[in-house]
Design a protein around this nucleic acid. Sequence first.
DNA 1: ACCTGAACACCGTTCAAGT
DNA 2: ACCTGAACACCGTTCAAGT
Lengths: 198, 198
Amino acid sequence: VFQAAFGLAQREGLEAVSMRRVAQALGVEAMSLYHHVEGKAALLDGVFELVLGKLPPAPRRTTSWQRAVKERAESLRAVLLGHPRLVPLFATRPAVTLESLRHVEHALELLRAAGLSARASLDALQVLVAFVVGHAVSTVREGEADRTAPGYETLDAAQFPRVTELIALLPSHDVDAEFRFGLDTFIAGLERRLESPR
Amino acid sequence: VFQAAFGLAQREGLEAVSMRRVAQALGVEAMSLYHHVEGKAALLDGVFELVLGKLPPAPRRTTSWQRAVKERAESLRAVLLGHPRLVPLFATRPAVTLESLRHVEHALELLRAAGLSARASLDALQVLVAFVVGHAVSTVREGEADRTAPGYETLDAAQFPRVTELIALLPSHDVDAEFRFGLDTFIAGLERRLESPR
DNA sequence: ACCTGAACACCGTTCAAGT
DNA sequence: ACCTGAACACCGTTCAAGT
């Protein structure tokens, strides 16, 4: 049912997902979809849950909470980057679905066991998800034609020394390493908070 | 020129921004817009830059780098939440515009002065922006009708103890405090990294 | 140079009609 | 119950024609 929309979105992008196109992919005559789905919003929600379903179940806890948090965040990132054209869904659709509750429960338990309060574990989870999704969005965005690119060659090195300095690094820049930098840094911040709570 | 599109988007949302509606708002006959703007994508880019232009200039450095980084991040968040219906633009449009280069340069200088390497300052900036934008997206998303809401009352407390525990906290949950939690924690992580570089 | 009307190839959704 | 055709009120964009 949703599989057709999912496949279409993955092949041709989210903007290609129309009631007409999806119906056509199903060999059916367009308006019939409304008997199986509420409308287009519900259709996209279905696709969203389908993607979320690809998140692997939480592994049995065998390591430190730090490593476990990293594993969950990297798994989510992997799912997102595995379906680059569907990433915008995660920035548009409501985040909480029944499908995701098991993952949420596990993540909260992880953070509580690390020593965070109930409130802090909620904050930390929301922040982690916002970061992973936000960073995935920015990663995927790179694929676009950067027509706005200000033409780096014309950049005034005297006015923008730091930017100029970074342009040399840009070709070898590793966006996955960038993600791990953010994740590790945030986890280090959590550690410090646990050592000296205020 | 772009002001009309900006006003329309702010009043009625991004999906109301069509060439026809914008032209109508200008008292002109629709297809005339193509003489002033490349197409719809360019129009949205223009609106994007217009919003970015509202970011206040970096204040003269008078405090610690920690406070300066917080101020920049909170300023960006304030601009985003000041135009809730335009936030999705930041998840769709290319991030680097000439308009934003001054801000980028300042932020990089800030992070370098704190002691980060060139590469680390790039990572940190990208991560901070991804977090601020990602979190703003999630903040704004709350305004939507959460039709997917799984009906918390039917939730199995035995199966989801941590989630159940949090539902009680939810009514009094402060999303701004959540943002500051993330920001403070990330900055604390940066501090630790500076103390013991590896 | 700038604006326009008509047209093309699309949208989501409603609704009455079919089987 | 499920599917359909026609219709409504929209889209972005092209293009030849006007001033």
